[in-house]
Write a protein that binds this DNA or RNA. Structure first.
Lengths: 325, 325
DNA sequence: CTGAAAGCGCTAACAC
DNA sequence: GTGTTAGCGCTTTCAG
């Protein structure tokens, strides 16, 4: 149906190579030839066949994006940003859902092999050993996971978490709890550590709860545990847990922030909450954008190398935090 | 790097066609030949080149998915389900974000032309005229939008909305409001109508607010309007508005459901709310799955034709609704 | 500056 | 059953 390059060539009485060059190396042709070709292409709404192109050039103009769970509120903004960035450079993005399952994640990844130019692997659930076995290491960029010699984008929650602790302390809180995320999560380790060290900096010893999986229910559950303590403020591993926590507290008749202040992390579902959630904003969207940028620039400049980009975070104060009771 | 079919053939002393047939038409070959080929393929981790395949067969094994906003909580479950379904059939899915912009939506759509076998177009923002101009009408399936002669998947909120009204009436509510969604939304028209007719069925006349865009702020705004009325229960166009509404009410010192009952629609962010939101569950995920199924089956059985699938909805009662005050 | 020809990896007639 | 051959649509030497 669609017109092909050689049909265009035939119509113009030119060779296929000339027409091809009109697009890829116009400078090697007469200006007139180029404009004739372009005009004809326009007229017929000529669209080069991506498969033929990919076959000869070895470039697919596709990038793959693997996330553990598309519906996890952390990822949509990231996917969206990645998609926009890729699109702006003529790339299409495949989105694959790893189903929170290392094996499925691996399947998705290998399924991409050969038909993407690179892949953004977000918060992989697979083991480090497995990560190292991924073919074409130089065409994979990790988000939220660090493995020596693999390029990665990390969101450093440290600063944001420090700000969160400072914020709570300045509101008069002395009994602070950290609601831990998934046991093997890199982000959780980092966030817990940040809370711990900043609390100690203030001469406080935080209560450490968890590990919890990142679900609303887990947050509600944490609220039950918290109800029986002297804690007046809690910092949760992420927004999902934080919102569950708020929910559980309100269920128990406690008010946020009057009875207990709550801080989330990631800043992705803060709009859907009441009260609006104070959260450590990391810019999931930024991560998506930066990851694609790194990939794309590696396509031109060789490999990404062992690049390691750390994205900063900052506390966004809303209304789920207030003075200690 | 990756081994090719002809290299395999050479190694086995077979012709390329034989090796090719070992995969696509094994029944035409000796069982022994087939197993020899398969063994060798296994050994070399042979992966057919998708571009070469697409070029010869004309089948890309790709499907495109266009949504107005990936980060809109309605879509991630849909995308996820679509991706899983497609993957199960060997298809990859491109996800494109239309940015709530008819023009960008069109761009994304045309960008797909030629490298997908079909596309699922969700809640398109473009005009009906424009929709009709989409090339290859028989390879596009609409979700949440009805245009004569174009295949579509519709979520019929009518039943769910009726149940919502019945539920509220049975709780003793007589002053019910409908918080309207975007003016030109097909779903909004349908939902408003359903609420209206069911209220009248009960001899009630609902208050109609809106139109509102689907944002948290709009919901908060609606709460202000509602505060000054006799209304004791509100049904919102969607969960986003409903949650904003709850938020706004609580801000104003009103309790949900004690002072005002709230019902959402779509059932996509109900977990992230306090109290858990009573909502009309439509199964965005189901829509994604069904759309992909329809597309895939059309690839085999010719075109989708003017199929029109209507998905039912039902009320899921949680804790944002209670007896009238 | 432009054309001819080969080939990317695979499939599909058409032979034998 | 299996091999031969001819492309799919494009890019890219290599000539002229």
């Amino acid at each position: 149906m669609a017109i092909t390059l050689s049909q265009l060539a035939a119509e113009l009485g030119l060779s296929t190579s000339t027409v091809s060059r009109a697009f890829s190396h116009p400078e090697r042709l007469t200006a007139e030839t180029v404009s004739r070709v372009l005009a004809a292409a326009q007229r017929h709404a000529y669209q080069p066949n991506r498969f033929a192109k990919a076959l000869t050039t070895g470039k697919s103009m596709n990038i793959g994006l693997v996330v553990p769970d598309i519906a996890n509120p952390f990822f949509p903004p990231l996917i969206k940003a990645a998609q926009h960035r890729a699109r702006a450079h003529g790339y299409s993005v495949y989105v694959a859902d790893g189903d929170e399952n290392p094996k499925e994640e691996w399947n998705q990844l290998t399924h991409f092999a050969g038909h993407v130019d690179g892949v953004v692997l977000c918060s992989p659930r697979m083991s480090t050993t497995k990560l190292r076995e991924i073919p074409a290491q130089d065409r994979v960029i990790l988000v939220n996971r660090e493995v020596p010699n693999m390029p990665c984008i990390l969101i450093d929650s440290t600063v944001g978490m420090h700000q969160a602790v400072d914020h709570l302390v300045s509101l008069g809180h002395h009994e602070i709890a950290y609601i831990g995320g998934p046991a093997r999560s890199w982000a959780n380790t980092q966030r817990r550590k940040a809370v711990l060290e900043r609390c100690r900096h203030h001469g406080l010893e935080p209560a450490l709860l968890g590990p919890y999986v990142s679900t609303h229910e887990a947050g509600v559950d944490a609220a039950r545990k918290l109800g029986r303590t002297a804690v007046t403020a809690a910092i949760a591993f992420d927004d999902v847990l934080a919102v569950g926590l708020v929910s559980g507290l309100q269920e128990a008749g406690l008010r946020v922030p009057e009875d207990l202040s709550v801080v989330g992390c990631d800043d992705v579902i803060t709009e859907h909450t009441a009260p609006p959630l104070t959260s450590v904003s990391g810019g999931a969207a930024t991560a998506g954008r930066v990851a694609v940028d790194a990939l794309l620039s590696s396509f031109e400049g060789g490999s990404i190398g062992a690049s390691r980009t750390v994205l900063p975070t900052e506390l966004v104060v809303r209304r789920s935090t207030g003075p200690a009771r």
